Amino acid sequence: MPSETPQAEVGPTGCPHRSGPHSAKGSLEKGSPEDKEAKEPLWIRPDAPSRCTWQLGRPASESPHHHTAPAKSPKILPDILKKIGDTPMVRINKIGKKFGLKCELLAKCEFFNAGGSVKDRISLRMIEDAERDGTLKPGDTIIEPTSGNTGIGLALAAAVRGYRCIIVMPEKMSSEKVDVLRALGAEIVRTPTNARFDSPESHVGVAWRLKNEIPNSHILDQYRNASNPLAHYDTTADEILQQCDGKLDMLVASVGTGGTITGIARKLKEKCPGCRIIGVDPEGSILAEPEELNQTEQTTYEVEGIGYDFIPTVLDRTVVDKWFKSNDEEAFTFARMLIAQEGLLCGGSAGSTVAVAVKAAQELQEGQRCVVILPDSVRNYMTKFLSDRWMLQKGFLKEEDLTEKKPWWWHLRVQELGLSAPLTVLPTITCGHTIEILREKGFDQAPVVDEAGVILGMVTLGNMLSSLLAGKVQPSDQVGKVIYKQFKQIRLTDTLGRLSHILEMDHFALVV
Rank of each mutant, 00 (worst) to 15 (best):
M250S: 00
A38H: 10
G205D: 12
E40I: 11
K25F: 08
V178G: 04
E213L: 06
K102H: 09
E40R: 06
G116A: 14
T257N: 07
P78C: 09
S19W: 15
P273Y: 02
G256I: 00
E144L: 02
E213A: 14
P6L: 15
P49K: 09
T193Y: 08
Y163S: 00
I44W: 04
A231C: 11
E270K: 10
D245S: 09
R45T: 07
D35N: 15
G185I: 00
Y233V: 01
A159W: 03
S50T: 08
E128L: 12
N113T: 02
G115Y: 07
E176F: 01
C15A: 06
L105Q: 01
V160R: 15
P33K: 10
G148A: 07
E104V: 12
D245N: 12
A48K: 10
R164T: 07
H17L: 15
K97W: 05
G115I: 07
H218L: 05
L106A: 11
N228H: 02
E201V: 04
S73D: 05
I122Y: 01
F111K: 04
K271S: 15
G11K: 08
S23E: 12
D179H: 08
A195M: 07
T135H: 11
P33L: 08
G134K: 06
D238N: 11
P59F: 03
L106S: 07
I143K: 02
L248R: 02
K269D: 02
H66E: 05
D86L: 03
Q7M: 03
S19H: 09
V180Y: 04
G11N: 10
T236Y: 00
E4L: 10
I214V: 06
L248D: 04
L106N: 08
D245H: 10
I261M: 09
E213C: 08
Q242A: 04
S217G: 09
P59Y: 05
K137Y: 07
Y163N: 01
I143N: 00
Y223I: 02
T235Y: 15
L251W: 02
T87Q: 00
M173G: 03
E104S: 11
V204W: 06
R209Y: 09
H203W: 03
R125P: 06
T260G: 06
L251Q: 03
G256A: 04
S147Y: 03
G31L: 03
E201W: 14
L241F: 09
R121F: 02
A226E: 09
A158W: 01
R196D: 03
W43D: 03
L105I: 15
E29P: 12
K98P: 10
R224S: 03
V206S: 07
T53S: 12
C109I: 04
K108M: 01
G96S: 11
E62R: 03
I219S: 08
G259D: 01
D47E: 07
D238I: 08
R164Q: 03
G139C: 10
R58G: 06
E213T: 14
H67M: 05
F197L: 07
R266L: 00
A60T: 12
R121I: 01
K177H: 02
V180W: 00
E187V: 07
D245V: 09
P88T: 08
L56I: 11
G246F: 01
V255R: 02
L210H: 03
D179Y: 13
F99S: 12
S174I: 00
K72R: 12
R45V: 06
S19D: 09
V204F: 10
D179N: 05
E270S: 05
S27V: 14
L248K: 06
P70S: 13
P33M: 10
N228A: 04
A38E: 10
E171S: 05
H22L: 10
G115T: 08
D79R: 10
R18D: 14
G256V: 00
C103Q: 01
G274D: 10
R196G: 09
L268K: 04
P74S: 12
G185V: 05
W208C: 07
P215D: 09
E40T: 11
M169T: 07
H66Q: 12
S61E: 13
K39Y: 03
T53P: 07
A237Q: 07
G153N: 02
C272W: 11
I188Y: 02
S19C: 06
G14T: 12
T257F: 01
I95H: 02
R121L: 01
P6D: 10
